[in-house]
Amino acid sequence: MSELPQLIVDGLVSGAVLAIAAVGVSLVYGILHLVNFAHGDYLTFGAYAGLGVTALGLSMVVATVVAVAATAALAVGLQLVLWGPVRRRRAGLLSSFITAIGLALVLRHAIFLVVGAGSRAYPVDQFSVERLGPVRVSISQLIAISLSIVAIAVIGVLLARTSIGRSMRAFADNPELAAVAGVDVGRIVLATWLVAGALAGLAGELQGLIQGAFDPNMGWNLLLPIFAAVVLGTIGNAYGALLGGFVLGLVMELSTWSVLGGGIPASYKYVVAFLALILMLLVRPQGLLGRRARAL
């Protein structure tokens, strides 16, 4: 009886985390035209940065701040030492793509070398749950959903109301004209990575929290659902990515509902994410928020 509401809550929680990760990918794609295949590993980096802080005996609050700041710094640093030079050498889409895959591998193995292959968990009581009517919500889930909502609100305000957000949208719309209008392209690039990195750090920590235990493959495993959310919500559209994240989170959880022919095993959730994506591409290839391409 309480299975459906429970699945919806679980879906919203994982959807919220997917959503904030997907927004970062979408901003980077929309503004920098880069498909960042390493984004999942930025999440892993954030998760371990937070873990390192808790290992020092500091609170989850400090861990969250550090995860966000460290991953933002990683993203900006990689722009300076990797993506900037790659762009200056006028690398094409394909070479950037391959570079991103290479970066993903390097990051994942670097993290693996430092922390080892075993599973870790944050010092949060996984078994402490709150009952909200028919559903049970763990402390981790409560933290994840509330921080995600805060992050989404902050990003919404940043993009819609601040001058840096307006410049970012202008740059995505027409980079040359943005420069003519007075926008410093270099600043926009760094701001984009700063935001995408911060969101990746937060998403990584929250994913580690709601999963309970995580290992260096966490982000990589999440990459495909993140990309599915980005495409589902219309590639390059930040608001679409948010929506795509929530839709995908819900679809993945609801696919395990026993009423649906017994429900599929939870381990097939990611397969369901892809079926949803393929279905979407067949029915509405421009994504949820995209305009239909004009027929030729």
């Binding site: 001058s163 307006r166 410049s167 949208r169 202008a170 995505a172 719309d173 027409n174 040359e176 004209l177 943005a178 003519v180 209008a181 007075g182 926008v183």
Partner: peptide, 29 residues
């Protein structure tokens, strides 16, 4: 632009996805 020049291109000379107000405010960057 910061020095006191500006330029109106022949094509694509507005930010199509942004509102008129935002276009104007961007001009003041």
């Amino acid at each position: 632009t910061a020095l006191g020049l500006n330029y109106v291109p022949q094509t694509d000379n507005v930010f199509a996805a942004l509102s008129v107000r935002e276009n104007l405010l961007l001009g003041a960057t």
